[in-house]
Amino acid sequence: MKVRSFFAGLIVAAFAAPVLANGLPVKAADGVLTGSNGMTLYTFDKDVAGTGKSVCNGPCAVNWPPLVAEAGASASGDYTIITRDDGAKQWAYKGKPLYFWVKDKSPGDKTGEGVNGVWQLAKP
């Protein structure tokens, strides 16, 4: 179990995005939201907007790493920061937590759209 947590932590750290000039780690590109690393962001239909909660935890978060909010990050406009079950901070857009998809390999990939009928491209 500790090994799984260790690797989950590495995956989350790999998808943490630095803050852009606008103070946020998110930008719009080709009609979708991306992390500052250019990787596509997604929302999960099972997350209820406005609850401040992510229901994608454990193995789900290994496949769908959250967009981590670094310590000291400050939300603004439609962007908020939620606290995950493990205590980590995650960015949300219009109340919906934001995630990457581990099967997207390059900036611009959008292979997570529609996975299991519950994963959607995050759109501005």
Rank of each mutant, 00 (worst) to 15 (best):
N57E: 10
G23H: 05
V55D: 06
D45M: 03
L33M: 14
T43S: 10
L20C: 13
V48M: 11
F44K: 00
C56G: 01
G52Q: 10
S36M: 12
P25T: 04
G23S: 11
K53R: 13
G35E: 06
N37P: 07
L24V: 10
A28N: 13
V55K: 04
G31F: 12
S54L: 02
V55T: 12
A49I: 04
L41S: 04
C56W: 00
V55S: 06
V19H: 09
G31M: 11
T34N: 03
G38H: 07
G50P: 11
D30W: 05
T34Q: 04
C56Y: 00
T43P: 03
S36L: 11
F44M: 03
M39N: 08
G23K: 06
D45C: 02
Y42S: 02
V55I: 08
V32T: 12
D30R: 05
L24E: 03
T51G: 09
A21D: 15
A21W: 12
Y42W: 11
S54K: 01
G35C: 13
C56M: 04
G23F: 04
T34G: 01
C56H: 00
T51L: 08
G52L: 12
G52S: 13
V48H: 09
T40N: 08
N57Y: 05
K46N: 09
D30T: 08
V26D: 00
S36G: 13
V32Y: 04
N22I: 11
N37G: 13
S54Q: 03
V26R: 00
A21P: 06
T51H: 10
A29S: 14
K27M: 14
G52K: 10
D30G: 10
N37E: 13
